[in-house]
Design a protein around this nucleic acid. Structure first.
Length: 108
DNA sequence: AGATTGACTGCAT
DNA sequence: CATGCAGCCAATC
C-alpha cells in the first residue's frame, strides 16, 4: 500500500471493524468500500502482510464458507480462529450468515 | 503497454 | 447441484 487512502487501506480498515464473533463476505466489504470489487477484497487479503492487525479470518465467501486460498493451509487456521470466537460451522463447513453476518452500522 | 491472474458473485444453462 | 460466462479492478510479469 503506497498511498494512505489506497483501496487496500480502505479494505483493511473496514475488515478491522468487523466485531468479534461476526463475519462479513467479500462482496459485503466490496459494497461498503466504494470503488472496489469482491476480487479486490480477496486480492487485498492475499497481499496482506503477516503481523497485521486485520482480522482477515472474519472474511468469508458469499455462502458463509471459508474460501480456499492460493497457498497452503490458511483455510484451516481461519476456521479454527472463528470457532474459537464461538462461531459454529454446520456439517457442510458453513456459517449461518443470518446469525453471524456482520450488519455494518445497522441496528440489527 | 498488453496479457494474465486472483481469498468473489450472480445469473444462465 | 455442477458448469460456464461475464463483470469488476489492482498487482505482476
Amino acid at each position: 500500500m503506497a498511498l494512505p487512502d489506497s483501496v487496500y487501506q480502505r479494505i483493511y480498515s473496514t475488515v478491522r471493524r468487523i466485531p468479534r464473533g461476526r463475519v462479513a463476505s467479500y462482496g459485503q466489504i466490496a459494497r461498503m468500500v466504494r470503488g472496489t470489487t469482491p476480487r479486490m477484497v480477496g486480492y487485498a487479503m492475499a497481499a496482506l502482510p503477516e503481523g497485521s492487525r486485520v482480522s482477515w479470518h472474519r472474511v468469508v465467501n458469499h455462502g458463509g464458507e471459508v474460501s480456499a486460498r492460493a497457498a497452503g493451509d490458511g483455510a484451516v487456521v481461519q476456521r479454527v480462529l472463528l470457532e474459537k470466537e464461538g462461531l459454529v460451522f454446520d456439517r457442510s463447513g458453513r456459517l449461518d450468515l443470518a446469525r453471524y453476518g456482520w450488519k455494518a452500522r445497522v441496528a440489527r
